[in-house]
């Protein structure tokens, strides 16, 4: 009896409030507001600038597609920087994710010391892109540095090897980013913990040994996380900035010139007028490229990601 009176008193608003579609919107509200308030206008402005000549010190002047045309027809550094960045992303990302997965698997193991180990493998990520790391890396990789000292005990030819020469320099940066795999590792660790024990037990009962358990239980269930880390690290690689700027400053001969550094140098040149319009055009081109790559990744998702 009380139910019926409750039902009658339920207002249209309450019904609407509890609809799935409404709840969806309300929960999404923070982002909707945030996007409109903090991102949309700057993004629109930035797009506008990309069609302008803008040196920051005076108002922008509309020049239409000129920036874009120049980028695609006359700018050799653009293609060089793009090439360097793609190379960096193609090599650095998989290496980073693979290392993260392997170490996560190894550390997914409850011994007393494991917490301490996790911290040490994660620590490099904490130091981020700071000045200290830049100093560190230069000292370690210089021709008289620690890396060569260690390597030359195994490979005598490595004495005095110039890591900062035009060929190897990019690897100094790749090694740096792979060294900081800790955040991906952390995400893998959390996901590993989410895999229900019952599944492993069931597989054991079915006679699967360790390796079979890994390939038939762990790996498939990890694919969503692998995908996540892949997407995340790919985007990060394309947008990497600090390492290139602080350690090699794009050199020698632009062999380590990340795209975002090139873009930043156009926006805030060491000397001379800012080319903010041009830099904005570069930024939007990169946005399109990264979106494309991400889109392709998402398209591939259904082929290899196992959604429980």
């Amino acid at each position: 009896m009380s139910n019926r009176s409750l039902e009658r008193r339920e207002s249209g608003f309450t019904r609407w409030f509890h609809k799935e579609s409404t709840a969806g919107l309300i929960f999404s509200l923070p982002f909707i507001i945030g996007f409109l308030m903090f991102l949309l206008i700057p993004m629109a402005l930035s797009l506008y600038y990309s069609f302008c000549k803008y040196d920051i010190q005076s108002p922008p002047t509309w020049i239409g597609l000129d920036n874009y045309i120049k980028i695609f027809t006359k700018d050799k550094t653009f293609s060089k920087a793009l090439g360097v960045t793609v190379y960096f992303a193609l090599i650095g990302t998989p290496l980073k994710v693979i290392f993260a997965l392997i170490v996560a698997l190894i550390l997914n193991h409850e011994t007393r010391a494991v917490g301490f180990y996790r911290a040490t493998y994660y620590l490099p990520s904490i130091i981020g892109g700071s000045v200290a790391v830049a100093i560190l890396w230069r000292r370690m990789f210089e021709s008289n540095g620690t890396i060569n000292a260690i390597l030359s005990t195994i490979f005598p030819g490595m004495t005095g090897f110039n890591w900062f020469g035009e060929g190897p320099a990019i690897w100094v940066l790749i090694i740096l980013t792979v060294w900081q795999f800790g955040s991906s590792m952390l995400i893998f660790l959390s996901s590993l913990k989410q895999i229900p024990m019952e599944l492993y037990e069931a597989a054991s009962i079915d006679g699967a040994n360790g390796i079979k358990r890994f390939f038939h239980v762990t790996l498939p269930l990890l694919t969503p996380t692998i995908f996540f880390n892949l997407v995340q690290q790919t985007i990060n690689s394309f947008l990497a900035f600090t390492q290139s700027k602080l350690i090699t400053n794009g050199g020698p001969r632009d062999s380590t010139l990340f795209y975002t550094v090139y873009q930043y140098n156009k926006a805030f040149p060491a000397l001379g007028k800012s080319q903010m319009g041009y830099a904005s055009a570069l930024a939007w081109i990169m946005l399109v490229i990264v979106s494309l790559v991400t889109f392709l990744l998402f398209k591939s998702r259904s082929k290899w990601v196992y959604d429980a």
């Binding site: 991102l39 993004m43 629109a44 402005l45 930035s46 600038y49 985007i235 926006a267």
Partner: peptide, 14 residues
């Protein structure tokens, strides 16, 4: 898409 926006470019408009 918010993951793909480089901070250095949004700097000025923001």
């Amino acid at each position: 898409s918010t993951m793909m926006l480089p901070a250095q470019i949004l700097m000025i408009p923001q």
